[in-house]
Each structure stands twice: as structure tokens, then as C-alpha cells.
């Protein structure tokens, strides 16, 4: 009984820390996505469409993340878990 609870908590904490990692990594992903048009060179309609799609995708990810992060209890001190 107690064991199961602890397992659950550990899993929960682990998930939460990974979520924070994801929140930190999201702008890095954004940088990569926003630099890709440079490879193409000319801003054709396809490039513009790609840019807005990537943008929308990032927003969607950020939205999901922020919802999950808001469910969190306040971050424990130190907060950089393994």
C-alpha cells in the first residue's frame, strides 16, 4: 500500500521534472524551426505557410505545457531534479 503510493509519487515527480525540461527546451526547438526558412532563401508562399504552421505548432505545444505546468504544486526549492 505504502509502496504503491511512493511509486506513484516518484513517477509524478519525475514526470513533472521532465515537463519542466520540456518547457526549457521549447524555445530551443523554436529557434531551430524559425531558422529553417534561411535554408530555403526565397520567401515563397510555401515558406510563409511553413513558418506559420511551425509557429502554430509551437503555440500548441506551449499551451499544452503551460496547462500541465500550472497543475503543478509550487516548485520545490532547488527544483532541478535528476
Amino acid at each position: 500500500m505504502t509502496r504503491r503510493t511512493r511509486l506513484f509519487l516518484e513517477r509524478e515527480g519525475y514526470r513533472r521534472r521532465r515537463l519542466r525540461d520540456m518547457a526549457r527546451l521549447l524555445p530551443v526547438l523554436g529557434i531551430v524551426l524559425f531558422l529553417l526558412p534561411l535554408l530555403h532563401g526565397r520567401p515563397e508562399a510555401g515558406v510563409i505557410a511553413y513558418l506559420f504552421l511551425a509557429w502554430a505548432g509551437l503555440i500548441l505545444l506551449a499551451g499544452l505545457l503551460s496547462r500541465r505546468l500550472q497543475e503543478d504544486p509550487p516548485a520545490p526549492p532547488g527544483e532541478s531534479g535528476p
Binding site: 518547457a23 526549457r24 524555445p27 513558418l51 509557429w55 503555440i59 506551449a62
Partner: peptide
Amino acid sequence: SGLEFVTIYLGPTLVLIGWWW
């Protein structure tokens, strides 16, 4: 200058989605 105007919005987007930093 074409698509370049969008950079003015991309920067804030990156900062906002990187709010955790």
C-alpha cells in the same frame, strides 16, 4: 523587404514560450 518583418514577432514568441527560463 518581404518576410523579414516577421522576425519582429518571432523574437517575442521565443521569449514567451521560453518563459520558464
